[in-house]
Design a binder for these strands. Structure first.
Length: 741
DNA sequence: GACCTGCTGCGGGTTG
């Protein structure tokens, strides 16, 4: 293995020597044989800056070094910024071997694209959307230019798994193999990904039809250590003049922790990112020191983002980015001293990714979480009394440290919107194509394998009705008037859309806007602008949601993050509340990672848990409110909320806790019993009651039946919810028996 | 107090 590099092209060996590397890293050695063989897919899993890209490119370039013409390597990236990085990083190597590298995305220079058009060779760096546009507009050129294609590599593959865009990508790759006549001699795919849990399941997401095997290469356990701390803050219920607000104390600490070094502060929302960055910049100004705190998020101008990225990478001046997930993926910013999370993270997967940004020169990764909980009053919500934002943060740290687990992709989704897109794209690419050919290409052999022939026929006939497609006398399908219109517009190439905002209105007053990508049911209770509301009416045409004041106690400060929290996280939260201890076991020792305030806040939550006897019951009468504590992930919790609304209750869920106001808990238990015994309630019934089911980009063109089916699969899990209810009721039954004895 | 990604061809103007 040590001599593996000798199998590389001599000029590449020279290049390695010139970099001053005394040897290749382990993953780089391991990747050489499988990639040179060209006979297997490869998954390379390693943390940021571990040399994944070189692990692929050294052998891949070696294998095309003497290729005279035609593009030899197709590199696909989810971000334009990553393509620009890769273009720079490949420069010295490609110069040495005289290999043409062409970045190809919406903003890359036309001159280099034209050059590749005239003389296809070397490496193309492209986004899925630009590849789609090439297939539709110039498939003849693609067919000849890619005739000698040897490797396909996908960067940041985890960003694609389980998403609409990921399905789009798989479909593009399959269409490309088909176009090049390589269905029976597949082009090997290499996926580059951060170290994420269940690697064995990834090959199925890289090539669903399994026509090539996959070799998994992973970084052996890195010896780097993780240092973490959770700091608690209390938001005062009454604002007194001159009192320091919780956000101000968070900023004071950030200023002390971050000034003088390079750090990333993740604040989970753009507005929070802005307000923290502004406060920190003002603190620099009032202390008459140069500002080193800058915001970074999706709504900021590209130039501002790039300036900040360059400043971090150059590492000349201390710099802290206050950011959203824009700095989570692999844009080259170098390693930072530490990562700070200012609100509870929503998934272990993203927390791991953020962690990977810290740890300079093999030193420890440092993670801090600064969590604010509300000052409690008589009327406080049960979510706040349990200190669930803190408990969620603690649970996530335990899962991060103690296990390799991360949230798996939801494989029950149909991706109908993307299927419709691909039907249109195929017809646009070929001009005309038969229905059975489309079915084989996309569903039977392609990535949409859970779509049945019946679904597919319904989809096509509806597409005919709305004039997206037309059938010729010969049986071939061609684009209809609407189909032409949609596919001719440049916005067609992306399969994802920016979610539509609904206006939230009470009476004649507008409260604000809400993106509708989560459950909104008439009768549902929600929290908006710090108050409780009940949804009266959802007007999908005018994009308006009418609400009315809901009575009840104070709304929870922590309503959940909007992104689904997984079952495993909620179970871990239950576990630490039961034990009254969140410390991590290392050998004989239990390691404390909370500061004094965090410890005190946790104790309040654990004490409330105990007093309310929540270790033995999942049902509670809390004043006028009936409360159900399922300790399950959001998909199951949402299913239970929809069931209760279906049965006529005004229910809502906050941070995984279900509340039904002005209701006796026995009535709720009765309703859940009938759900347990009534096998006829299905996810389809629940989805039928949802006013706005069109979530994905092309959902609006789907036939009703398919739209409902897709929505039901994505939003609800009735089987799991029923099994859980059975369990909760059984526990209650046992408990009642024990009390009697 | 909800996150992020991407996109063509062409016409018209300016500059070297």
């Amino acid at each position: 293995m040590i001599d593996a590099h000798e199998r590389l092209d001599f000029r590449i060996q020279q290049w390695i020597f010139k970099q001053g590397w005394d040897r290749l890293r382990e993953i780089q050695c391991l990747a050489i044989d499988p990639i040179l063989s060209g006979k297997t897919d490869v998954l390379i899993s390693a943390s940021t800056a571990a040399g994944k890209t070189e692990a692929f490119f050294l052998p891949a370039i070696s294998s095309i070094a003497d290729q005279v013409s035609g593009v030899g390597i197709l590199y696909i990236s989810p971000l334009k910024a990553l393509i620009n990085d890769q273009d720079r990083r490949l420069e010295s190597l490609s110069d040495l071997l005289d290999i043409q590298v062409t970045p190809w995305h919406g903003d890359s220079p036309q001159g280099r694209k034209n050059k590749l058009k005239r003389n296809p060779s070397g490496i193309i760096l492209i986004t899925p959307e630009s590849l789609e546009s090439l297939l539709i507009r110039d498939s003849g050129w693609v067919k000849s230019a890619f005739q000698n294609l040897k490797h396909i590599v996908i960067d940041e593959f985890h960003a694609f798994i389980g998403t609409e865009r990921g399905h789009h990508l798989l479909s593009l790759l399959h269409r490309l193999e088909h176009l090049l006549g390589r269905v029976n001699a597949p082009i090997p795919r290499t996926a580059l990904s951060a170290t994420l849990g269940d690697l064995e399941s990834v090959p199925a997401s890289l090539r669903p039809n399994k026509s090539l095997s996959c070799k998994i290469i992973k970084q052996t356990q890195s010896s780097s250590t993780l240092k973490m701390q959770v700091k608690g803050y209390i938001e005062s219920a009454v604002v007194i003049d001159e009192a320091v607000t919780a956000e101000q104390s968070v900023c004071n600490d950030l200023y002390g922790l971050c000034r003088g070094g390079n750090h990333l502060v993740f604040a989970n929302s753009r507005s929070r990112t802005e307000s923290i960055a502004t406060t920190l910049a003002e603190m620099c100004e009032s202390n008459t020191v140069p500002n080193e705190f800058f915001p970074h998020h999706g709504s900021l101008a590209k130039e501002m983002r790039e300036t900040l990225e360059a400043r971090l990478q150059q590492d000349q001046m201390p710099t802290t980015a206050v950011c959203t997930m824009t700095l989570e993926l692999g844009i080259d910013i170098g390693k930072v001293n530490s990562v700070v999370q200012v609100t509870a993270p929503h998934s272990i997967a993203s927390l791991r990714q953020r962690m990977g940004r810290s740890g300079r020169r093999g030193g420890a990764s440092i993670l801090r979480m600064l969590i604010t909980e509300a000052d409690l009053t008589e009327k406080s919500s049960i979510v706040d009394k349990l200190r669930l934002e803190l408990v969620q943060s603690l649970a996530m740290i335990r899962l991060l440290v103690a296990s390799k687990w991360y949230e798996p992709a939801d494989t029950s989704l149909y991706h109908f919107s993307t299927l419709l897109h691909q039907v249109l794209a195929l017809i646009a690419q070929w001009g005309g194509i038969r229905a059975d050919q489309i079915y084989v290409l996309l569903c039977k052999d392609g990535p949409f394998q859970q779509v049945t022939v019946t679904h597919f026929k319904d989809l096509l006939s509806h597409m005919g009705k709305v004039d997206l497609i037309t059938q010729l006398g010969s049986g071939e399908l061609v684009l209809g008037f609407m189909g032409e219109k949609i596919t001719n517009h440049y916005t067609f190439y992306a399969v994802f859309k920016t979610p539509e905002e609904f206006r939230i209105v009470t009476g004649s007053k507008t409260l604000g806007t809400l993106p509708v990508d989560s459950l909104i049911l008439e009768g549902q209770h929600i929290v908006f602008a710090g108050k409780r509301w009940v949804v009266e009416l959802v007007d999908t045409d005018k994009k308006v949601i009418s609400v009315q004041h809901a009575k009840g106690g104070k709304p929870p400060k922590f309503g959940g993050s909007g992104m689904a929290v997984h079952d495993v996280v909620r179970q871990e939260m239950l576990k630490i509340l039961k034990e009254g201890d969140y410390r991590v076991q290392v050998g004989e020792q239990r390691i404390e990672f909370g500061d004094a305030v965090a410890q005190a806040l946790f104790k309040e939550g654990a004490d409330f848990f105990k007093t309310a006897k929540l270790e033995s019951t999942h049902f509670l009468q809390y004043g006028n409110t009936a409360v159900v504590l399922p300790w399950a992930g959001d998909k199951v919790v949402n299913t239970l909320v929809a069931v209760l609304i279906h049965k006529g209750f005004g229910a809502g869920a906050f941070a995984g806790i279900i509340e039904v106001e002005n209701t006796l808990i026995d009535d709720v238990i009765g309703a859940l019993k009938s759900f347990r015994d009534d096998q006829t309630i299905s996810a389809i019934d629940l989805a039928d009651a949802i006013a706005e089911k069109a979530i994905d980009k092309f959902d609006e063109y789907l036939p009703q039946e398919i739209l409902v089916k897709g929505y039901a699969a994505r939003a609800f899990d009735v089987e799991k919810a029923r099994a859980l209810v059975k369990e909760l009721l059984m526990a209650r039954f046992k408990q009642a028996k024990e009390v009697k004895l």
